[in-house]
Simulated scan of single mutants.
Amino acid sequence: MKKRKPSLLVVDDTKTNLILVEKLLANEGYDITYANDGIEALQAVGKKRFDMILLDVMMPRMDGFEACRRLKSKEQTKDIPVIFLTAVADIDGISKGFDVGGVDYIIKPVKPRELKARIKTHLELKFLRERDVEQTQKDIVYTLGFVGELRSKDTGKHVERVAEYAGLMARLYGMDSEEAEVVKLAAAMHDIGKVAIPDGILNKPSQLSDEERAVMNKHTQWGYHIFSRSKKPILQAAATIAYEHHEKWDGSGYPRGLKGEQIHIYGRIAALVDVFDALGTKRSYKEAWSLEDIYAAIRTESGKHFDPKLVDLFVDHYGDFLSIRERLLD
């Protein structure tokens, strides 16, 4: 999987300045987009994600200060570091730049080594902060997943394995590393709705009655309701997975009886990897299946329970799934 290039937005109303920056950064490994004023900059950030913005101060239609102020007022752009580029080195102007949310100032004419060093430094700081936030987010996600599993007495490392399987399957399916990570984290919360299921049903040591099964099946709806109000991508994905991981390719699943590609790809991935792990795990009401029987069952359910394309990927990369299983045995 190719590593994503850091993306920069360079905003300046003078063409020669844009050409100069383009030449200076040509071999630095950045994905660079150019804009001619503050209005174009705001339009650009609405279409693409940027890791940093180099922003001229004096521009027609909308100057750099106002553009930065607007960027910092929006949730989706407030954390993008902004470095001001200006020919004016007065203290008031520099102070104003920091007041509206800039992280640094570079005085024109730009010195190549200074430009490269400051971009690199602020990108490293941004990525460090993101890693800290990401790790905290991961910890919370896995904790939520374990909350759903703790009430079930015999699921062990089910949450971790399902998450790892889902991330692997997402990558095999062709998702980029960022989306695959979202699927991995969201899959850890696939059974969070079980927090609403009575213990007597959740941990019953024998098969459930029809009435009990109807109650158990509602964990998909509870899981959806827990996460569906959030606008965060991971929790939106978690809502989808919680709701759809018991749907089946042939339409015989629950809760909505979705069929084929009516089921979101996240749900189809979670359906397969959840069953793969569940069949190989001892539960209060069943013994663990052998790997041979699990493999045969998943192949048999291609086009019935599971998306045929995902089954093919599972078969072709079976050894990778087994490696995860062996690493995370209970």
Rank of each mutant, 00 (worst) to 15 (best):
P6K: 09
S7A: 15
L20Q: 13
V21Y: 14
E22S: 15
K23F: 03
Y30V: 12
G38Q: 03
E40Y: 02
Q43W: 08
R49T: 15
M52I: 12
I53R: 09
L54M: 09
R61G: 01
M62I: 03
D63I: 00
D63Y: 04
S73Y: 06
K74H: 12
T77C: 02
P81D: 13
T86P: 15
V88M: 07
G102A: 09
Y105Q: 07
I106M: 15
I106W: 12
V110W: 05
K111R: 08
L115R: 14
K116T: 09
L123M: 05
E130S: 14
Q137D: 09
F146R: 14
V147L: 09
S152H: 13
D154E: 11
G156E: 11
V159A: 07
V159M: 08
E160L: 05
R161D: 05
A170K: 13
L172E: 12
M175E: 14
E178W: 13
E179T: 09
A180C: 01
V182L: 12
V182K: 13
V182Y: 03
A187N: 04
H190A: 01
K194L: 03
A196W: 11
N203V: 04
N203T: 01
P205T: 06
S206K: 12
S206C: 07
L208E: 11
E212N: 10
K218H: 12
I226T: 09
R229A: 10
S230T: 08
I234W: 08
A237L: 02
A237H: 00
A238T: 00
A238P: 04
A238V: 02
I241G: 03
E244M: 01
H245I: 05
G251H: 03
P255R: 06
G257M: 02
G260K: 02
I263M: 10
I263F: 10
I269N: 10
D274R: 04
D274F: 06
L279S: 02
L279T: 01
Y285N: 11
K286M: 07
A288F: 08
W289T: 06
S290K: 02
D293F: 04
D293S: 11
I298H: 04
T300M: 14
E301K: 08
G303F: 00
G303H: 07
K304F: 00
D312C: 00
L322S: 02
E326G: 12
R327Y: 12
L329A: 11
